[in-house]
Design a protein around this nucleic acid. Structure first.
Length: 153
DNA sequence: GCCAACGTTGGC
DNA sequence: GCCAACGTTGGC
């Protein structure tokens, strides 16, 4: 039974176009325990993902991705001079994990956050809730299907 | 650039 | 284990 997710990324840092170009990518740099736990415990290969552009004009869902590899230790936590270095993590005892995601497709047009807010059936989506900063969120199949349709799929 | 909401850290 | 201080996220 597949699960569905929404994953946020700032397009200036990593966009759907970049994923399309790279085909697949480690979802590294996540430094939030709740988000990590979703990747570590709940994400399975084949799960589908709404790729969300945050801090964008406008913010919204840009396309779809799919989980292509289950969680592995996030290599960026060991990179001493990197932005995501964590001095409390060790190879023997890694603190952060990340999954690999593969490009699936890009919506013809971005589905803006404002439209998600207004759409019937999406009232319970976490992403439209005020103050919801979690960068990886579970999504129901129903919500996923509605957003896909809004994206023209 | 502002700032509300939230998560994390560390002193006690 | 509380909670104030601080840092970050992310819409606006």
């Amino acid at each position: 039974m597949a699960n569905y997710w929404l994953m946020k990324s700032e397009p200036d840092v990593f966009s759907i176009d970049q994923l399309k170009k790279d085909k697949k990518s480690l979802w590294d740099g996540v430094r939030n325990y709740q988000a990590r736990n979703f990747m570590m415990n709940d994400m399975k290969v084949g799960d589908l993902v709404l790729f969300y552009h945050s801090n964008a004009k406008p913010p919204g869902v840009a396309g779809l991705a799919k989980i292509s590899k289950e969680a592995v230790p996030d290599p960026t936590q060991f990179q001493k001079n990197g932005e995501y270095f964590d001095p409390k993590a060790s190879k023997e005892n890694p603190r952060w994990f990340c999954v690999e995601v593969a490009y699936k497709n890009k919506f013809k047009e971005l589905v803006p956050l404002d439209d998600l807010r207004e759409k019937k059936g999406l009232e319970d989506m976490l992403v439209i809730k005020k103050g919801q900063r979690l960068s990886i969120q579970p999504v129901t199949k129903k919500q996923f299907d509605i957003v896909c349709k809004m994206g023209g799929l």
